[in-house]
């Protein structure tokens, strides 16, 4: 079958009628042209729209960095917190108002350097939120220093000597921390990314989506679209996402990053556990949480 041409007018009409534009704010993203994060700011509205979660029922919480400008560009509730504090603030919001869909966003530096101490605890408590980690392996907002996920030997204009430090493996970490949904997507595959954001939000519990992205301004050599595009691959068709061992094995392969859902399981969330404590003590949970 010959591919059908896509006409701009039809595409525009389709986007306008989809309802997804209601989730975009009138602020244009301030990222550099070509930044991978544009796929994410496009994907989240699509995911929320498809899930039927109204803008007023969602809150996007961010830390500090290029990625953390995100709440300004979407028309949900937004909270731009301190550097590294996205997960505790998101936990507070979700605990106070269980009816909200809480999406935490942040970069590799925010999440795994300055805020690294919070990740294990949000995961092990199974807070019912989605953490979208934008990993470009660089500190972009401060002009391109190496980050905890930069490759060994990586050079940038502001870090002109080879990075001597071993990068972290965030997927391996969150799997061992006890996250109940773990996946990986690539900003260069926007449709798959949108689908995975949708799955992550639909999961009840702590869902962690690792999003690989180039930094087109400060990384001209390592994680470019060309290189990442060649390296990424789909998950093996026979991958069992209930198998933690298989997920860990996949996460160890950083040379050819797999895209898809690595792991999924069900466990009581933090709210379930808190309610359980009250019930065990003979009390009543009552109407303590507000609805949106």
């Amino acid at each position: 079958m010959t591919p059908q041409p896509i006409y701009l007018e039809e595409k525009l009409k389709e986007v306008q009628e989809s309802g997804r534009l209601a989730y975009r704010s009138k602020s244009m993203p301030t990222w550099c042209p070509g930044c991978g994060y544009f796929s994410i700011v496009d994907g989240l509205p699509g995911a929320l729209n498809d899930l039927g979660i109204a803008p007023k029922d969602a809150v996007v919480v961010s830390g500090i960095g290029c990625s953390s400008r995100f709440p300004f560009f979407v028309n949900t509730y937004g909270f731009h917190t301190l550097h590294g504090r996205v997960l505790p603030v998101a936990t507070g919001i979700k605990t106070a108002n269980d009816a909200l869909t809480v999406i935490a966003v942040g970069g590799d530096g925010d999440g795994f350097a300055i805020g690294g101490g919070h990740v294990p605890h949000a995961a092990r408590r199974n807070v019912d939120l989605t953490y979208l980690l934008f990993d470009n392996g660089i500190y972009g907002l401060t002009k391109g220093q190496t980050s905890p996920t930069s490759s060994v030997g990586f050079k940038t204009p502001t870090s002109p000597y080879e990075n001597p430090d071993q990068p972290l493996n965030p997927l391996l970490m969150v799997l061992t921390y006890g996250a109940t949904w773990v996946g990986q997507a690539y900003a260069g595959r926007p449709q798959q990314l949108e689908t995975m954001i949708k799955q992550a939000i639909a999961h009840r519990g702590f869902s962690y989506l690792h999003i690989l992205s180039p930094c087109v301004t400060f990384d001209k050599t390592d994680r470019t679209y060309v290189r990442l595009g060649d390296l990424v691959r789909d998950l093996p068709a026979n991958h069992d996402k209930g198998d933690l061992g298989a997920a860990l094995h996949l996460a160890m392969d950083t040379a050819t990053p797999a895209l898809g859902v690595f792991y999924e399981t069900q466990r009581p969330t933090l709210a379930d556990a808190l309610d359980g404590l009250v019930e065990k003590a003979g009390g009543s949970v009552g109407q303590k949480r507000r609805t949106a």
């Binding site: 350097a113 190496t146 870090s159």
Partner: peptide, 8 residues
């Protein structure tokens, strides 16, 4: 020179 993970 050590490039650390936070000001702390």
């Amino acid at each position: 020179f050590i490039n650390v993970e936070s000001e702390f």
